[in-house]
Amino acid sequence: MEFPRYHKEIVTDLLDGKFILASDPKFVELKNSIEFYNSFFKESFDFDVELKSDFAYILSAETNEQLSRDICIFFGLLCYELDKDGKNFLEEIQYAEFETDMLDSYFDNSAYIDLIQNNNQLKNSENRKQFINNLGRRNIIEKTNDKKFSFTPAHKVFMDFAANFAKGKLTSTDVEVETNENK
């Protein structure tokens, strides 16, 4: 049986919770063989492959609730602070390079300081660095060096979530399903 090119890397990356980005040659291979991968992940693990225009990832019935919540809090705070700073946060997140010092300055002077201090991943500079590394492992950010990073298109998952949240599209049923899954 012949497998698509990069098959092993594609499966390993997705099982590691990574987003495969359009800039990665693996993405084209995954996209071209999407039917195969849909059935492969469904039959092997009961996972769903989510293929978007510029990234792909897999989802299971079980979700990493803590990480998802931390990422949402992180993006929520960052967008809020960037906007407060008079910046077009969507453009900044899409195109700009971020420095950890700048991030520290936003978080340490935030009006949401209580929320930040009570979050283990975000409460101080050291923990935030680890958190950023974690986002790097998932391909949500791309590190330029130890102190600089930029966001990959994978951030859109969370921006879409915020837009849907605002629209009230998440119905009470959705909420219940999500909550049950997390138990």
Binding site: L14, L15, D16, G17, F47, Y57, I58, L59, S60, E62, T63, N64, E65, L67, S68, R69, I71, C72, I73, G76, L115, V157, F158, D160, F161, F165, L170, D174, V175, E178, T179
Partner: peptide, 13 residues
Amino acid sequence: PYKAPIPKVFKVF
């Protein structure tokens, strides 16, 4: 933030 619904993020097994 701790009561609101959240997007799904793959749990690494």
